[in-house]
Amino acid sequence: MPVEGLVAIGAGLAVGLAGIGAGLGEQAIGAAAVGAMAEDPEFFGKGLLMTVIPETIVIFGLVVAFLLMFI
């Protein structure tokens, strides 16, 4: 039992910390993207692309969490 609990905590940390990291990375990019879009909506595509790039980290966290939980 205690092992399962630790695993759950580990999985949570994996997702949570990855989220914080992505958030930090996204702050400046997001600001820039919003700025560009405010001037010209055509930047929506490029802006979105730039903004979501760091967010793959969260998916890594999630995959790790999966591996911890299910395997």
Partner: peptide
Amino acid sequence: LSNTISYARLLA
């Protein structure tokens, strides 16, 4: 590799 794993978001 990270691109590939990125598709996990479909599930996430």
